[in-house]
């Protein structure tokens, strides 16, 4: 092809333009890959695979456990208030038909059907029948209540909070677990 003096041949122009386009595409691909990497990281961390529990519920169980503590169990007492009285006032809670002695697991007490149903009606909306609430005094399990038919296994997610006990020197720990 003929070119005037001082002008670049068209072939050079086309090659130059192609190189610049390729570089531009590579830059955009890198930006896209970085975005995908960020998205995958977030998914891996916050969305467990094959989980029946919604992603937000897994991450924000702290709100669920607090609302569970505020759940009205009897006319006068919430679950949190009942927990503070354990194990000192366990006989009163037994008489009310809320708890009973535990024999099959390591906990001292477990929930009776009435308390289990109340908790299931509340927690079941989010966790189905795959939850457990445990009250602990350091390493000792004082109380445990599981969803009807739940099988204790390695929890998919868990959270805990501290509640006061009748003894000001000692706090109790409440654990909420969601099973896969």
């Amino acid at each position: 092809m003929l070119t005037r003096k001082g002008q670049v041949p068209e072939a050079v122009e086309i090659i130059g333009a192609s190189i610049i386009i390729i570089i531009g595409v590579i830059v955009l691909l890198f930006a896209n890959a970085e975005y995908q990497h960020s998205l995958e990281n977030a998914k891996e961390k916050y969305l467990p695979a094959k989980s029946l529990v919604e992603v937000l519920d897994v991450q924000f169980m702290g709100t669920d456990i607090l609302n569970t503590m505020r759940l009205q169990i009897t006319e006068e007492k919430t679950l949190g208030e009942l927990f503070t009285a354990l194990p000192e006032e366990s006989s009163s809670l037994k008489e009310q038909g809320l708890i009973m002695d535990q024999v099959s697991l390591a906990a001292l007490y477990e929930c009776r059907e009435s308390l289990q149903t109340t908790l299931q009606n509340f927690l079941g909306k989010t966790y189905g029948n795959k939850w457990a609430v445990t009250l602990m005094d350091q390493e000792n399990i004082i109380f445990m209540c599981m969803a009807p038919g739940a099988i204790p296994t390695r929890p998919l997610s868990e959270t805990y909070m501290t509640v006061p006990s009748l003894d000001p020197e000692k706090d109790l720990t409440v654990l909420l677990e969601a099973y896969p």
Binding site: G62, L66, M69, T84, M161, T162, V163
Partner: peptide
């Protein structure tokens, strides 16, 4: 923070 508020109220 909400759990600390709850603790104080319960205490």
């Amino acid at each position: 923070a909400e759990q600390d508020m709850y603790y104080i109220g319960l205490a």
